[in-house]
Amino acid sequence: MKQRPTFLITALCFGFAFLYVPILSMIAFSFNNSRLATVWGGFSTKWYGKLLSNDKIIDAAILSLKIALVSATVATILGTMAGITLARFRRFRGRTVLSGLVTAPLIMPEVITGISMLIFFILIATMIEKLTGLRTQRGFTTVTLAHITFSLTFVTTIIQSRLLSADISVEEAALDLGSRPWQVMKDITLPIISPAILSGWLLAFTISLDDVVITNFTTGPGATTLPILIWSKVKLGVTPDINALATITVSIVTIGVIFAGIAMNRAERRRDLDAQMAFRSNQ
């Protein structure tokens, strides 16, 4: 413990510095009194006040959350179904096509996905106008649909790999004990993959929340999500209220991570206790 090589310590310091100095400086400047984002003008919380009274930002945040909630939920339902199908039904017509289609957005550049979606939505809008005479605008619906499309990929992959590594005989045992296939799904498969479903949902939620590229292509004049708003504001120079917004986001994430860490720690301690119990009961 005494002699730590200086090289390792230096490397560690640089590593942490690259990771956290930008974030810390951003947090510091969010309390800056000056208008200029990079010149220190004394301590103040005025940017937080400005932020909260800025309806545009609040509206954008709410819209982002709404889109993330809806798209993550729909993507999780569809992705779970696709994942189960791909993992548990080995041979059926169109299996290769389905697995290819599901993973395509994963390797497609986002710009391409965005452009193709835009063209698709324009086509649909023209068709609707021709058929019903209604003029539709891109906005919440189109962005949500686009988000579902690409987050579906991630959920499917997570569920599929979880099922492939799971012991299939557990499902067979339920079948053997008299449950029909749909009961096995409800009683055994879904509970076993529920952690994967949850992490799939969380991943879909996060991806949707911070997406800029695809959202930019598929959104309309009325619907500005938070990342788009920040993006357009930053184009005119970084202002301290953006720093304040980012600080709030970082705080929420940090609190979340801390709670998750505590929960995981507890679960691990419980597992240790269980193992001890199993060992003792064996004596």
Binding site: D167, S169, V170, E172, A173, A174, D176, L177, D187, I188, P191, I192
Partner: peptide, 12 residues
């Protein structure tokens, strides 16, 4: 009914 090699108990 079958007793599986891995026992296949329902973990939950």
């Amino acid at each position: 009914n079958m007793m599986f090699q891995s026992y296949a108990l329902f973990p939950h």
